[in-house]
């Protein structure tokens, strides 16, 4: 049944070469944990990606109930946690996943660093990696404000003051960041938009570049 459907589509569109080109390639011996257990460190990039996928999914579902407005945000989050079916689990996925992404990304970066994989010809991918790092930090910073509870509010107040401490232009950075001179309604809508529209677009673009470069250059050789 599945095979028949697949063949029918393949006959018309020739999809086999496309997915072969994306997915079907050899795993070098030195990155295969089946050969040497310690090669599991090469899985951290893929694990980071897996968690990013679950973040995107759980985030899409949370957005069914969440409202980015200072009157309703807290209550909508409370509603998700206390009333929606498995709401605590879905919110928990997004909450714990947020920390896990950063942990996995960091382990991945350490792997790349200690295997020297950032060296020529892979310098550009390291640079893209650093940009990804900042985008992921941005997710954390903007997402933290969204529940609009005390912790969220004051953490962002601190973050805004750190931004303000930049010499000369700090004041302007802060105003643009929080969308005015009070940390309030405009900050919440701004952070929400950044968290769910701007950063995902940026992240997906950067990940695309990251993966294209890996396919072009292959995984760095053994030490």
């Amino acid at each position: 049944m599945f095979k028949k459907t697949y063949d029918w589509i393949d006959e018309r569109l020739g999809i086999t070469p496309i997915w072969r080109d994306i997915a079907d390639h050899d795993v070098p011996a030195h990155v295969n944990p089946a050969n040497k257990m310690s090669a599991f460190v090469y899985c951290f990039g893929g694990l980071t990606f897996l968690i990013i996928v679950t973040q995107i999914l759980s985030g899409m579902f949370l957005a069914m109930y969440y409202v980015p407005d200072i009157v309703n945000a807290y209550r909508s989050v409370q509603y998700i946690t206390d009333e929606v079916l498995l709401g605590q689990i879905v919110r928990g996925m997004h909450f714990w996943g947020a920390s896990l992404v950063i942990i996995m990304m960091f382990l991945h970066m350490l792997r790349v660093f200690f295997t020297g994989s950032y060296k020529a010809p892979r310098e550009m991918n390291w640079v893209v990696g650093v940009l990804i790092f900042f985008v992921v930090m941005g997710f954390g910073f903007t997402g933290y404000l969204l529940p609009w509870d005390q912790k969220a509010y004051w953490a962002t107040a601190v973050g805004a003051q750190i931004a303000e401490s930049v010499p000369w232009i700090g004041k302007y950075i802060k105003t643009v960041l929080i969308g005015g001179d009070v940390l309030g309604a405009l900050t919440l809508t701004r952070f929400f938009a950044i968290h769910v529209f701007f950063l995902p677009a940026g992240l997906l673009g950067l990940l695309g570049l990251h993966f294209i470069m890996i396919r072009k250059q292959g995984i760095a050789g053994p030490l």
Binding site: L57, F61, M64, V84, L85, L86, G87, I89, V90, M93
Partner: peptide, 15 residues
């Protein structure tokens, strides 16, 4: 495993 909590979450209004 990922879909299991997400689907009930989305159809909560039915309950």
């Amino acid at each position: 495993t990922i879909a299991a909590p997400l689907v009930p979450f989305a159809i909560d209004p039915l309950t």
